[in-house]
Nucleic acid binder design. Structure first.
Lengths: 111, 111
DNA sequence: AGAAGTACTTTGAAAAACAAAGTTAATGAG
DNA sequence: CTCATTAACTTTGTTTTTCAAAGTACTTCT
């Protein structure tokens, strides 16, 4: 039990980053502005969550110019994909675990 | 997408509380010390997480004496069960959503 | 009276999250 | 060339969350 919980990653202990990963798993390159509008985030907030994923080396960044405008896109790394799958595995096991907690004492129905 | 993420509860944005809920879903009453040893928490840390769940009215508390010693046990409320299921539903939808993010521009392979 | 166990509460500190404003680099209009 | 604009950040300061460590209340046991 303790181990299962430690297998859950703190990186994914956050709703916004879960949403970002979900997008990254299905789409090859995702644009900054796509994250921003789909998740309804401010620039700063998005950038800080991106930084968490980037620091963990779960995403890689590509910067280019498109139509003469800067265009930044992100892609999940193999490491990121593995980490996310491991997280989901741990979560699934945690939930499926029909955990054998020692029986709690029955209510003392006179108190 | 935005909506799905908002459907994820902040209460469950935490590994310890996910573990607690998993125990509570399968066991009727769970003792303070059972949480403590299965999740390997200090008294204080456990109490604070219990408080979060209790404030949300996701668990109820029963205090009694067993073998002349104080014994506190916790049970998930209907509200808690619903909230947790809703959270898991949203998570599942988020992951299953083959989300149609606008295509990112292809790499400009000369930069 | 004193020690021990259970279940907290309090205190303080560190880390995470966020909003708002500021910054940089490139483009486009005049 | 100058100024405004857009994209993508970065910085600053505040609030919130999390946690460890120590302290407390109540009861029982010796």
């Amino acid at each position: 039990m303790k181990q299962l919980i430690e297998d859950l990653s703190e990186v994914f202990d956050n709703r916004v980053r879960l949403g970002m990963m979900s997008m990254l798993l299905v789409n090859d390159w995702v644009e900054f502005n796509t994250f921003k509008s789909m998740l309804d985030l401010t620039d700063g907030r998005l950038a800080s969550h991106l930084k968490v994923l980037e620091s963990a080396q779960y995403i890689e960044v590509r910067k280019q110019f498109v139509n003469r405008k800067p265009n930044t896109t992100y892609r999940v790394t193999d490491l990121g994909r593995e980490a996310f799958n491991a997280h989901l595995d741990a979560l699934e096991k945690l939930l499926k675990m029909h955990n054998a907690t020692p029986d709690a004492p029955p209510p003392m129905d006179g108190v």
